[in-house]
Design a protein around this nucleic acid. Structure first.
Lengths: 248, 248
DNA sequence: CGCGGATGGATCATACATTCTTTGACGCAA
DNA sequence: TTGCGTCAAAGAATGTATGATCCATCCGCG
């Protein structure tokens, strides 16, 4: 939350500095107003981060008061979120938070398993020498960080995949990937990486680079499928563990 | 447009009567109000049907006047459409129609090629004898109609696929499929089926039923991939032909 | 248990303030 | 004359405020 306040100052993008950004062409839905953080973003964050309980009612007037605006922008933000699937509406009964539960996460990562291999296969056929160098550079940074700074890992990991997908001709698929990626990133922020998962991530990234270098698109697709599948399962396991801990 | 006026009367759903409906659990975003046709639906139809030109500006006040409402519901509808990808926004410059062009259609059907095989494979493992009977019944009706009534074919064809996907556990994927299906259906309404395509559709549907009966999930997935791919290419070809005709 | 009012809130209609974009007229300079 | 920058006015987007109306839910009363 407080981080947002500092965002206004011009961030000098050093080449080694990674900030998770949508692949070019995908307009971060972002603020429609001049304000740094739109109501839309605030509500969305609250939902994904779990600050709003599942199925909690979203009363327009309350939200407006809380964020110091009127109901009109709030209602528009809620409609936007509805279109994106984060909020459900019942006629004349207003909006509710769509639960970001295990089913939701499973649904999301399964879509990733279906589409990322296709994106990856395409990338293998389009990769330049510079792309491979960039992938290796990022992977070096990932290993250098070695999960010490979770947030940095998340940014680097996203950058790794963005290098592969950002130029894909199918902007819808790329956008689909990006939206799902954001959700999973937010959810996984709540948990830590197991040692097993850390090792697997490193191995699979290196294996992937090898496939790209060897121009083996099909194997790259398989690796990515395994990678995404494993990532999703890992998050699900963490969620299960956490809910089991809460329960008893 | 005038058709909408009759929608209010209760449609008695005879079993042999097919009306394309979203798979259970998918709330047709539909009206938030009591009105039969919400502003949302009207704008959406206008975009998909091509009545609104690509990149045309969507001025809230105009739309409100045209539909006899105030700007408030219109703005919400536009945000909803933004979330669904039918409308693009530029800060302080309002909304524009996202072009439903060849690239758009290609993007959409490619997503279908990626996800429908997974849905189908799952269905093969879950299909009951009743499901197969239902598929055959629908296919019989399709062949009986034999493309004579294009609208009826569209409804039946959608029903065929809905039988397979409607019970899938991953509601996100099912919803994704449904949304894309609706778009493709609307676009393809503008064109006719070639004779070649008609034959292929029949053959693939029958082949698919055979796979389900034989419990061959992988082959069913392959058939569906080919089926969706072919369907997408067919629409694209029609669009190309039409635009070539316009141009020259 | 069922019914009727009370209440909260959704939905919509207006009206208006503010800010941004666009556009075209105008004037100055090459 | 032509090109270009300036600037004011119009057109819209965006946000605020307020009231009307309708619907869902709750609560007390019979």
């Amino acid at each position: 939350m407080t981080v947002r306040a500092t965002i206004r100052e011009p961030v000098v993008a050093v080449t080694t500095d990674f900030k998770a950004e949508p692949p070019a062409g995908i307009v971060a839905i972002a603020a429609s107003s001049s304000e740094g953080a739109s109501v839309y973003e605030l509500i969305r964050e609250d939902i994904i981060e779990g600050r709003l309980a599942a199925n909690e009612r979203l009363v327009a007037a309350d939200i407006a008061r809380r964020h110091g605006t009127s109901t009109n922008p709030v209602r528009e933000a809620l409609q936007l979120l509805r279109g994106e699937g984060f909020v459900t509406f019942a006629p004349n009964r207003g909006a509710r938070v769509r639960p970001i539960d295990q089913d939701f996460v499973r649904d999301i990562y399964e879509i990733g398993v279906l589409i990322e291999p296709a994106l990856t296969r395409w990338f293998v056929g389009m990769a330049t020498h510079e792309d491979i160098t960039e992938l290796e550079r990022i992977q070096d940074l990932i290993e250098e960080n070695n999960f010490a700074d979770p947030h940095r890992h998340s940014e680097l990991d996203t950058a790794f995949h963005t290098v592969m997908y950002q130029r894909h001709y199918n902007r819808h698929v790329a956008e689909l990937w990006w939206k799902h990626r954001e959700v999973l990133r937010a959810v996984s922020r709540r948990y830590n990486f197991t040692l097993a998962r850390r090792a697997t991530v490193m191995r699979e990234h290196r294996e992937l680079i090898g496939c790209v270098r060897a121009q083996d698109a099909d194997r790259a697709g398989d690796v990515i499928a395994r990678h995404v599948e494993g990532s999703g399962r890992h998050i699900l396991e963490q969620m299960r563990a956490a809910s089991a801990a809460r329960a008893g």
